[in-house]
Amino acid sequence: MQMPSPKSRRWGDSLFRGLTFLAALGMIGLVMVIAVQLIRGSQLAFTHFGLGFVTGSRWDPVHGAFGSLPLVYGTIVSSLIALLIAVPLSLGIAIYLAELAPHWVRTPVSFLVELLAAIPSVVYGLWGVFVLVPLVRTALEPFLQRTLGWLPFFQGTYYGFGMLAAGIILAIMIIPTISAVSREVLLAVPNSQREAMLALGATRWETIKMAVLPYGRSGILGAVILGLGRAIGETMAVTMVIGNRPQISPSVFELAQTIASIIANEFSEAFDELHLSALVMAGLVLFVVTLLLNILARLLVWRVARAPEGVTRE
């Protein structure tokens, strides 16, 4: 093989370098295209409604009313229900896997939890419609009404579909995210912290409670926010079980609608310009919120587990 002359070699190097550079620029360009496209698409709705878009409480495409408050409400409440269920469970998993589990248990159980993340959203939705929703209707909702029915949250008809089912399915879907990141954070806590506590005569739980968890606090918060971001943007499974009715009701038994689910439901059938634009604007709101949550979460997680790549890898 003949050696290439230094000149042509330099030429090849700059070409290669330039190509990879372009690809990298493309990534930034892509996010900009996404932002510009969303802003441009929502222009019409914005000039029509202004801030009333966010404060309006009626979403009725037939009559040209596009107030997104019910969607925002549905998104926030379903995500909060999800967090309420998922955070304690995920912390339990993270603590178990990082601190307690014997070695031979760790790998298979971590694998199973990751498997939970690999199942497509639409399959969760299918399972939700045919397994979870009937279960919620026949068992969970009657039970909640019997025991906590005096609260405004647990009143009304049992549909099965609705806010509660959406919250539960979201919880299942964000458990892998929160538990995996928290586990990484706990593993990054230096052993000296644990040893110091144990040497003072603390039990294992006291060690975890007083030394390990406080040390990883901001990282765990980051994990929770990352999970929240996922819950807010999750579309298919929610669309299939939430009942798709944009309304604000204190009861979690009621049908509801989220930003993501209304886009999935109405976008392809929105023939009216204004309707389409309103949906894109809802998308813009979703984009901005998830963007901010993600940035916040990354910053928090980075602070604990220095190397950012260590967080996502096992």
Binding site: L38, E234, F287
Partner: peptide, 21 residues
């Protein structure tokens, strides 16, 4: 950073944008 943030963008947003373009 963009890369990390992009993994968190809801996939339905990507659908809207590709539709619009």
């Amino acid at each position: 950073f963009t890369c990390d943030v992009m993994t968190g963008i809801p996939s339905i947003i990507v659908g809207i944008v590709v539709y619009g373009t």
